[in-house]
């Protein structure tokens, strides 16, 4: 009886804690399970499948273990075979069960890795927009070469348009560029160009940030991604184009200096060859090396 009471109390505790977790999880935004972009959608499928797998395998396994432990306790007068060992058949089963699960999971892993490879261009009706990303200490510089504008710690993109991000870094350690709602994440490194393709499925504000610790200002390297309609986007581009806040060489040199917690900034007419010259700074022969060509 005492045993039963304990078990009931334990179950009530566990359930109430689980409920609390569910409430808190719903209260916040489970961005990874609530994808707003093409890539994040594909990635979240895997996350959901893993959750299902965890409950389908984990919980039965734990229950089965407990069952065996309680059933064969000393004093229960169950069968006792001290010399018994798993025979060939059972051993084969023990190896085959996980092997089968992993086999399926490996196929899923292989296919999804290729389907959602960040280097893959996203096929959509609208023409992709190129954005060049430079990780600085401690802020993100976004250059829009087609629109001839640049921003710091702020991104505006049209929804339903593939974005082709090219990334590098300047005067900064390794960094990682992550927009959880749209899909993740790729390193930005000096002298290297990495690439990630993302697309927002609908307008909205999505948080983005740095995922790799890069020193003092790391936690302040946040930005908002604003996905808008095409019309709003071109209006925004136009308004910046008309602003007098230009990003010339001097301006850029100032930007490269380490600084923390930068608010969003917008610039018109960044230096034409800015991105390539940043990459080339770190190459001995001046040629850009693309990770995808290595």
């Amino acid at each position: 009886m005492k045993h039963k009471a304990k078990t009931v109390i334990f179950l009530i505790d566990a359930l109430s804690i689980a409920t609390l977790f569910v409430i808190l999880a719903r209260n916040g935004n489970l961005q990874l399970l609530n994808p707003q972009g093409y890539v994040a959608q594909g990635q979240s499928t895997l996350l959901v499948m893993a959750l299902v797998l965890a409950f389908c395998i984990g919980i039965p396994l734990i229950l089965f273990t407990l069952f065996i432990v309680f059933r064969y306790q000393e004093g229960n007068n169950q069968a006792y075979t001290p010399e018994w060992s798993a025979g060939k058949k059972l051993t084969t089963a023990w190896w085959s069960i996980p092997a089968c699960i992993i086999f399926v999971w490996a196929i899923i892993g292989w296919q999804s890795a290729h389907a959602y490879d960040p280097y893959n261009p996203i096929i959509a009706q609208s023409k992709p927009i190129e954005i060049e990303v430079v990780a600085l200490r401690w802020k993100w510089l976004f250059i829009y070469p087609q629109e001839n504008i640049a921003t710091v710690n702020y991104l505006e993109i049209p929804a339903n348009t593939p974005i082709d991000f090219q990334l590098t870094a300047d005067n900064a350690p390794m960094n990682s560029f992550w927009i959880p709602s749209l899909g993740g994440q790729i390193y930005a490194m000096t002298g290297m160009v990495t690439q990630i393709h993302l697309m927002a499925n609908k307008p909205g504000d999505y948080p983005g940030g740095a995922a790799e610790m890069s020193g003092e200002g790391f936690s302040g390297m946040n930005f908002t991604v604003k996905a808008t309609s095409n019309k709003e986007y071109s209006q925004w581009v136009q308004s910046i184009n008309q602003s007098a806040n230009m990003l010339d060489t001097n301006g850029y040199n100032k930007l490269v200096e380490p600084s923390t917690n930068n608010q969003g900034k917008e610039f018109s007419q960044p230096n034409k060859n800015l991105f390539n010259s940043i990459v080339a700074k770190y190459m001995s022969n001046g040629n850009t090396i693309y990770m995808s060509q290595m």
């Binding site: 990635q43 895997l46 892993g109 890795a113 389907a115 959602y116 990682s176 993740g184």
Partner: peptide, 24 residues
Amino acid sequence: ATFTFGGIAGVLLASPTADYQLHN
């Protein structure tokens, strides 16, 4: 009880597509 879930989390992280979101 702990390692089973940790292991399944590990298998999830092992798949590159999921890792792109969960890394770091």
